[in-house]
Design a protein around this nucleic acid. Sequence first.
DNA 1: CTGAAAGCGCTTACAG
DNA 2: CTGAAAGCGCTTACAG
Lengths: 348, 348
Amino acid sequence: MSVIYMNNNKRITIYDLAKELNVSPSYISKALNNHPLVSMKMREKVQKKAIELKYKHNSYAANLRKGISRTIGVVVPQINSFFSEAIAGIEEVCSNQDYGLVICRSHDSYENECRALDTLMRQNVDCILISIAAETYSGEHLQNIINNGIPVIQFDRFVDNFNAFRVVNNNEEMAYWAVKHLINKGYKRIVYLGGTEVLTIYRLRKEGYLRALKEANLSISTDLIFDNAFSEKSTIDIAIQLLSSNTPPDAFFTGSDYAALNVLQVADNLGINIPDELGIIGSGNDILTKFTKPRLSAIDQKSMELGRKAANLYFEILAKEENKEKVVEKEEIVPGDILTRESTAKSQ
Amino acid sequence: MSVIYMNNNKRITIYDLAKELNVSPSYISKALNNHPLVSMKMREKVQKKAIELKYKHNSYAANLRKGISRTIGVVVPQINSFFSEAIAGIEEVCSNQDYGLVICRSHDSYENECRALDTLMRQNVDCILISIAAETYSGEHLQNIINNGIPVIQFDRFVDNFNAFRVVNNNEEMAYWAVKHLINKGYKRIVYLGGTEVLTIYRLRKEGYLRALKEANLSISTDLIFDNAFSEKSTIDIAIQLLSSNTPPDAFFTGSDYAALNVLQVADNLGINIPDELGIIGSGNDILTKFTKPRLSAIDQKSMELGRKAANLYFEILAKEENKEKVVEKEEIVPGDILTRESTAKSQ
DNA sequence: CTGAAAGCGCTTACAG
DNA sequence: CTGAAAGCGCTTACAG
């Protein structure tokens, strides 16, 4: 073990390179940036010297001068498997474009979300990609960002009474198809376990659920509809209560894979046969759901694709702005897939 | 839909506030920073005006001036469930300290890793937390960062022939205990499915595996030891080949949960009873492994804790530096847990 | 092809 | 308690 800090060796700047090569700092800057007016010979000479002296370009100085950062800010409610896949998609696109990524988490709190947005603005991010907190019902704070000239792109969860870019699933239809799949399989008393109605994506999914039931002339029972079944505890409590009642449901449609698996486990503990006595379909398509027994049916929300498309949308906006084209808000849909696996494979 | 960009409204600066309030810009800066020499009355007045005019502090300008960034860079090989948990732990600590997070992914490539480190240096990050790529066998590129005065803290995967901070599992022991657990349960022909030997963590785990076998006087067969069983395909190929052979193994110890579950599935397809004919223990403790059937035994690597400790270590270093204390490299161990569940519950 | 000068927006040591 | 001045490290319009 040895002392490792030698902060005294100051960072090399273009001034050091300039002195070393007997040219002006501004010329060094141009040479490093491959400015066309600098001869190839000089560019090579300067760039070689830069490597030799371990020169590191200072992004902060350049960004301050240029007013841009080549950095994108991302705000997510949680860092779980769904959002980390989305982040992976965003990272893929950004790193290809040589853009950096600053990640903030809101923990589903509106206040944290505001703080995160503020931090990102101070950091001069060129764009903000956000999936809103469960508490967020208004887009004022986002409009504030936009008014400061920073594009905001929502992905997955969004504020809808508000015009802005967004990349989202076809939530109503996804849910409709999931429930229709259950109905086609012969399930009749179908539970909806969703998230808070504050979030439009859950309102839409509930609408899809209701549409499928109505279309099939199945009765709609408010006893089977739950809007705040997010936590593990509430999922399990609801599942136990419903499945031990005199008139148990015969299927669950849940807002996450985790909730679906908790229901599956409760049913299993109660000796209920899946899929014959109870069908279960989740949402998300976590990579491990294919290993459960029975394998979990689910909506595949294409989270990585949501992330990719959101990031790509920014680069489209950028291109348009550079061409002085008019930039208008736009919604992009990433259609979800219904994966029908064993947990809904009722023998009819 | 409407046009939303009004980039012409220029950002408000301390000069605007100064003009508005008839004081000097430097005084504004002090007031905003709660400098003790500025009266409470003025601080309030300035801060109120700042909010009114929607002033946004420009971190780049401040950081350039101060030479720090209040930002930490993170480099991970992949954004999977293991590393996203670690990132969640890092984020937790950093956001409490009001530090930003810049995330880069190396895709397990040494070249990408170098590029990521370079980007982070240009961004003036105050510290770099890294879990190295599978290809990385030397710490030169990390030493280069350290020589530039930026602390480097390795977490999970690390270069060992190199003195630096690190936060890691007790890899050798974890593996030893996992394999000892298998042996205690009566398994005798135990397969090791690990990662590349380039990475020390896998070398250590293999050592733990070997130590447990030797201690129990079990024969060591190179046919049962695999160092590059990372991909889904290779896991499955190996599992099929071994399990259909004349002398099949009776247990697997794998370097990830995903690999363990793939083995489990192969065994299931071959009609092999788990845990009676075959025991399986994975690594990671993905949140969904408790829902597989049988439930997966695993090493819990405490990934979130690895992330938390790594970030905390930076703030310890920072505190020491501020106190002019000597800062020496340090290794912190996050002990893994052995979770014994159904997949190794052989009836004896 | 090359350079001098101004400025991005802040902070801080210094002076009053 | 308040301000003038310098400087962080770069880029760019301008001049030659």
